[in-house]
Amino acid sequence: MSIAFSALALTFLAATAPAHAQSAVADGQKLAFDRGKGNCLTCHQIKGGDLPGTIGPALVDIKAKYPDRNELVAILTDETKRNPQTMMPPFGRNRILTSEEINAIVDFLETL
């Protein structure tokens, strides 16, 4: 019975993982486009976003530019550690975004 339960649990996890990933991407896009939270559109052009800014680079080919996910997380958390002259707000350091929200935005950015 334990083997059957384990197989059922693995099947469930495999079936729900893509749905969870899609949910994280959708949550990340919502946060990125939210003018009161991520606010990425204020400075960046993003496919599907309205009224983008031009202060920062266009967010395209992100996975190719940043193959290491942790680098994107660090940029959103506190880019001033890497570049003290940046105009990028330290979303994590200033607690504008939680680590879960930052990871959701990174999930979304990796689809661009």
Rank of each mutant, 00 (worst) to 15 (best):
C40D: 00
F12W: 13
D34K: 03
S23H: 13
M1N: 08
I55L: 15
T11R: 00
L13R: 08
D107A: 15
D34R: 08
L8D: 01
I105S: 01
K37I: 04
I3Q: 11
G92C: 04
K81A: 15
A64M: 03
S23V: 12
G28P: 01
T77S: 09
A4I: 09
G49T: 08
R82L: 14
T42D: 06
T11Y: 02
L76K: 01
T111E: 09
S6W: 01
M88P: 00
S6A: 06
M1D: 05
P52L: 13
P67N: 10
G56F: 05
P84L: 07
R82Y: 04
D50C: 08
F33A: 01
R35G: 03
S2L: 08
F33C: 01
D34T: 09
I3V: 08
F12D: 03
M88D: 02
Q45P: 14
L112P: 05
A104L: 02
D68Q: 11
N83S: 08
K81V: 14
I102L: 02
I96C: 03
K37G: 02
L97D: 04
S23D: 11
G56S: 12
E71A: 14
G28I: 04
D107I: 11
G48W: 02
K81T: 13
C43M: 11
A15V: 05
G56D: 06
